[in-house]
Amino acid sequence: MAQIVLVFLWAGITAYILFGGADFGAGLWDLLAGGPEDGARERALIEHSIGPVWEANHVWLIFALVVVWTAFPTAFAAIMATLSIPLTAVAFGVILRGSAFAFRKSVTEPALQKLFGASFALSSVVTPFFLGTAAGAIASGRVPTTIGEGDVLRSWLTPSGVLGGTLAVGICSYLAAVYLCADARRSGEDDLAEGFRRRALLMGVLVGVVALGGIVVLQQDAPRLFGRLTGPALPLIFASGALGLASLVLLTVRRYLAVRATAALAVVGVLWGWAVGQYPMLLGTHLSIDEGAAPASTLRPLVVCLVAGTALLVPSLLLLYGMFQSDPGEDVLV
C-alpha cells in the first residue's frame, strides 16, 4: 500500500519539476533577458507561456506536501523540523514569485514593472535552489527521525546540499529554455527561438557537467546513495545520460517538439534514479518505508482518493494544456 502511495507521490514530484520547475526556469531567463526594451519580447513570450498554467503547475508542490504528511507523517515532521531554514526560504520564495508575477501584469508604470519583475525573477532562482538543498540533505541522509535531533544548518549546508541546489536551478532553467524554443516558434518568433536554443544547449552541457561532477561529490558525501546509484539505479542513470545527449543533438538540428520529450525524460531518469537509489529507505539508513508509513487504515482511503482524484485531474490538465498549446488565439488577460 505504501508503495502505491509512493508511486503517486513521486509521479507528482516529477510533474512538479517538469512543469512547475520549468516555470521557475522561465523566471531565470526573464532575469537575464536584458534591459526593459531589449528584453520586452522575450518577457512577453515567457509571460504568455506560463501565465495560464503556473498556478495549476504550482499545486503539485502542495500535493506532494499533503500526501507526505498524510502517508509518511514521521518523515514529514522530521524533514520540516530539521530543514526549517531552507524550507522557510522556499515558502517565502513561492510567495514572492507568484504575487510578483501577478502584480507585474497588472501595473503599467515601468518602474513598478521592473521592481515586480526583478522580484519575480530573483525568487524564481532562489526557490528551486533551496528546494534542491533540502533534497540534497534528505538524499545524503542528514535528517534524523527524531524531531529536535537534526542540525538545522549542517544538514543542508553540505556538498550534497549545494549540489542539489545547483542541479535544481540548472534543471529548471534547462527545461524552460527547451520548452520556450517551441513556444517561440509557434508564435512565429524564430529569432527568439534561436536565442533559447543557444541557452538550452549551454544549460544542457552545464547540467550534464554538474551531474557528472555530482557523482564524485556523492561518493564522498553520501556513500550509500552513491553505491545505489552506481548499482541498481545505474540503468536509469545511463538512460538519462543518453537522453541528455540525444537532446543536445535534437537541439542542434532544431527539432523543438521532439527535444521537449527527450529533455523531460532525461530529467525523469535522474529523479527516478534517485528514488531507486533511496529505496527502501525514506530517510538515510534509519527510517525505512515500512517504518515511516501511516497504518493501512489511513493508506487505504488515501489510495482511493488518489485514484479518483487522478481520474478527474488528468482530463482537466489535458484540457488546460491543450487549450494553450494549440491555439495561438488572442491571449490578453481580459
Partner: peptide
C-alpha cells in the same frame, strides 16, 4: 503532524485535488 498526520491528513489531501 508527525503524531496525527495519519489521522487528519486526508482532508488536506482531498483539498489538494
Amino acid at each position: 503532524m508527525g503524531g496525527y498526520g495519519a489521522v487528519f491528513g486526508l482532508p488536506f489531501a482531498l483539498e489538494g485535488f
